[in-house]
C-alpha cells in the first residue's frame, strides 16, 4: 500500500511552486542575466541632447474694437508656435491683469469682461465663440483647447472679449491689459 501524503505537505509544495514562479517572473521581467563572465568598454564621442518643450506667441492678440459698451463683444486672434521638439496639446492656462495701482474704472472693466479663446478654423474668428471654446473671467479655470501642435507648427487662436450687459457705469472709460497664458502639454 502506497502511503498518502498528508494535506500539510501538499500545501507546502503548492506555496513553494507559487513563490518559485513569482521569482522566475521577476527575474524574467527585470531582464537581468547572471553570466559569470563580464567585460566592459567605453565608446568615445557619444553626445546625447535632450529635447525641449516650448511655445511662443508669434502674432500678438488684438481686438477689432477699441472700445466696448455693455453687451458688446470684440473679436481678435493671435498665433502660437510650437518652438520645441515635442508635440504639445494646447490649453488655456490663465487670464490675468495687473491690478496694482488700478483705478476704479479699470477694476470695474476687468470684473465685467468675459474672454473666450478657441482654435481658429477656416471660418475666421467671430465675436461669438463656439460652444467648445474656453470661456472665463479673470482668474478662470484652465482648460484644454483640444488641439495638438506639432513641432514648429503654428496655431491661430481666436479671442473674443465681451463686456457684460450689467457692467457698472463706473466702468466707463476703463482700459486694461489682459494677459492670456497658453500652455502646452507634451503628447
Amino acid at each position: 500500500m502506497i502511503p498518502r501524503l498528508s494535506h500539510a505537505p501538499a500545501r507546502l509544495l503548492q506555496a513553494a511552486a507559487a513563490l518559485g514562479t513569482a521569482v522566475l517572473l521577476a527575474v524574467a521581467a527585470a531582464g537581468g542575466t547572471y553570466a559569470l563572465w563580464s567585460s566592459s568598454g567605453t565608446v568615445p564621442g557619444a553626445v546625447i541632447t535632450s529635447g525641449s518643450a516650448s511655445l511662443a506667441v508669434t502674432a500678438p492678440a488684438t481686438l477689432d474694437r477699441a472700445e466696448l459698451y455693455p453687451g458688446e463683444a470684440a473679436a481678435g486672434q493671435f498665433d502660437v508656435q510650437n518652438t520645441g521638439s515635442v508635440p504639445l496639446e494646447l490649453r488655456m492656462d490663465a487670464l490675468t491683469w495687473s491690478s496694482t495701482g488700478a483705478t476704479g474704472a479699470q477694476a470695474a472693466v476687468a470684473g465685467a469682461l468675459t474672454i473666450s479663446v478657441w482654435p481658429a478654423s477656416g471660418q475666421g474668428c467671430a465675436a461669438t465663440p463656439p460652444t467648445q471654446a474656453w470661456t472665463g473671467i479673470v482668474g478662470g479655470t484652465p482648460k484644454t483647447l483640444g488641439v495638438v501642435l506639432a513641432q514648429e507648427a503654428v496655431q491661430t487662436l481666436c479671442l473674443s472679449a465681451q463686456l457684460a450687459p450689467e457692467a457698472p457705469s463706473a466702468a466707463q472709460g476703463g482700459a486694461v491689459d489682459l494677459q492670456l497664458t497658453v500652455g502646452g502639454t507634451q503628447q
Binding site: 466696448l68 472693466v109 472679449a161 482700459a175 494677459q179 500652455g183 507634451q186
Partner: peptide, 16 residues
C-alpha cells in the same frame, strides 16, 4: 510629460 507656456497681452477698454 513636458509642459510649456507662453503669454500674450491684449488691451481691452470700455467706452465712455
Amino acid at each position: 510629460l513636458w509642459t510649456a507656456a507662453t503669454t500674450t497681452t491684449t488691451p481691452a477698454a470700455a467706452g465712455a
